[in-house]
Amino acid sequence: MKSTIGRNCLILLLGFLSLGAIGGGASLIISPNGSLIGMPLFLLKKSPFHDFLIPGIVLFLLLGVAPFVLVFALIRKPASEFVEKLNCYDDMHWAWTFSIYTAFILIAWIQLEMMFLQAVSWLHTFYMSLAIAILFVALLPAVRSLYQKSS
């Protein structure tokens, strides 16, 4: 029972991240000048980017589409030789490992965003907390046991 509650919580956290990142990333891809979501280009003055297109694509794919795929992979546990090659935990299903990767990607994303913007907002704190929550839930023994490969 505890394991399915933990798993469902992990799925909800990743789903929430995915929806927000798909929406935000798509907005930045559609409107690279940031006008669609009210982000002025001067925010990028200390970054290597001239507009929001590349950050939008990265946000959309890594923190939007990838967690969306993970939601289904955590439910169905499909086998995949390709992604298994990127799994650094041989005893765990790749979907669980990629949940951990996603949390670290989100942490790196927020850190880079704060560095480039040279500012911290409540959204940075919120998404950093979300990354920590994803890590915490994924590392719960009951959740780990669901994704442990049988020997």
Rank of each mutant, 00 (worst) to 15 (best):
I132F: 15
V65T: 05
I11C: 06
L59C: 14
G64K: 00
I100E: 00
Y147K: 05
A119Q: 14
G20M: 04
G34S: 13
N87E: 03
P40E: 13
N33R: 11
N33A: 10
L123W: 14
L53E: 01
A26M: 11
L112A: 15
K45F: 09
H93E: 07
T97Q: 03
V137M: 06
A142S: 15
M39P: 01
W122R: 08
L70M: 02
G6N: 10
A73F: 11
V58K: 05
F116E: 04
T4N: 14
W109I: 06
L13F: 01
K45R: 15
W109T: 02
L19Y: 08
A79N: 13
L61M: 15
M92I: 12
I11E: 01
Y89S: 03
G38C: 06
R7G: 04
L41E: 13
Y147E: 05
M92W: 01
G34D: 08
K2H: 11
L41Q: 13
M92G: 02
F42H: 15
S99G: 15
S150T: 14
A103G: 02
V143P: 00
I132R: 07
F16T: 04
L74M: 03
F60D: 00
S99H: 02
L146P: 02
G15C: 10
L59Y: 05
G24A: 11
C88A: 12
F68Y: 11
D51V: 09
G38H: 03
M1E: 15
F116N: 10
A131M: 08
E81I: 11
P78T: 12
A108M: 11
M114W: 04
I5T: 10
R76V: 12
A131W: 01
S18T: 07
C9A: 15
L12M: 10
E81D: 15
I107Y: 09
F72N: 13
L36C: 05
K45Y: 08
S3K: 13
V71R: 02
S121P: 02
L36H: 04
L135C: 09
G34W: 08
I22C: 03
S27A: 15
M128I: 08
S151C: 05
V69E: 01
V65S: 00
I110M: 14
V58A: 12
A133R: 03
